[in-house]
């Protein structure tokens, strides 16, 4: 019998595991970006820019300061809770299901890589893809918001004022929302047969959030993501129950907890997953 020495594959180590996750992410990224769902994600991201493009065209001159408060509300309400939510459901919810349907998942499970690391690579690829697309659209919308009023004041705000800091804050919100929604939908996609149905329930919860009591607001992701907005949104909603968002450190802990719980669910599910094969 062969002794197993001199194998071309390196022995397991922390460094190898990191390389494996990054390798899977690199392999998956082009597939994610060129997939059918990528078109839907891109379309959703473009739709998030459309209102600001129309505002620029039809000139609602409000000045950058006021526009930014509106923009923060727009990012929280429309971008995060609507477009990004749906994009994440599409991009992450079917990540494993698609491979199961293509009957190709067994190839990955027969590779000398822990199943959870393979899943981490897939998640990372989708996280990068969705974050890139929505970061670009958010930055484009932000630029249009700056420029929708007085062009000179907008440029000052953008170049010499608080613009860059606010842009970084909005990108942080987009990244955190993508990471958290993505992790939740990735886990749902492994745990339930129809993640879209479960996702729709969460969607309703996210959208009813302004009307919900604080206890139920705490069950939504956007409630915590809101803490990271660089500008406060309108404090008194037209309808609903007003409440201050949680402290940033609380949001950090809760979002980290959601990510950890989702990761644990993925590990649990993927270790028990049996890919479809003939004869089974």
């Amino acid at each position: 019998m062969r002794t197993g020495t001199g194998h071309p594959l390196p022995p397991p180590s922390a460094g190898l595991r990191l390389r494996q996750v990054l390798a899977v992410a690199r392999l998956e990224l082009p597939r994610v970006l060129l997939s059918r769902h990528a078109l839907s994600v891109t379309l959703l991201a473009l739709l998030a820019v459309l209102p600001w493009f129309l505002a620029l065209l039809f000139g609602s001159a409000k000045g950058p300061g006021r526009s930014m408060v509106e923009f923060a509300g727009f990012v929280e309400t429309v971008v995060v809770r609507f477009f990004l939510f749906i994009a994440c459901l599409l991009a992450f919810g079917g990540l494993v299901r698609r491979e199961l349907e293509q009957r190709t998942l067994h190839y990955a499970f027969l590779t000398p890589i822990r199943r959870e690391l393979y899943m981490a690579g897939k998640y990372l690829a989708s996280l990068v893809a969705v974050t890139l697309v929505f970061s670009a659209s958010t930055l484009a919308a932000l630029a249009l918001a700056y420029l929708s009023g007085d062009l000179g004041a907008g440029l000052d705000y953008l170049l010499a004022g608080p613009g860059p800091g606010q842009a970084a804050g909005f990108l942080l919100v987009v990244t955190l929302a993508t990471a958290t929604y993505g992790a939740v939908f990735f886990a749902l996609g492994l745990l339930v047969r129809r993640p879209v149905s479960a996702g729709l329930l969460l969607f309703v919860l996210e959208w009813l959030r302004p009307l919900l009591p604080v206890t139920l607001k705490r069950l939504t992701v956007s409630w915590y993501v809101k803490s990271f907005l660089p500008l406060g949104t309108q404090t008194a909603p037209v309808v609903g129950i007003a409440a201050s968002p949680p402290a940033t450190w609380v949001s950090c802990l809760v979002l980290a907890g959601v990510l950890a719980a989702s990761a644990a669910a993925v590990v649990f599910a993927v270790r028990r997953l049996e890919p479809p094969c003939p004869g089974t």
């Binding site: 293509q102 009957r103 027969l110 890589i113």
Partner: peptide, 22 residues
Amino acid sequence: DDPELLMRRLGYCAQVDAFPPG
């Protein structure tokens, strides 16, 4: 169920006639 160790030394040509697209 320990692919990290086992699959370094095992190869499986399954009957499934499906491939990742493209």
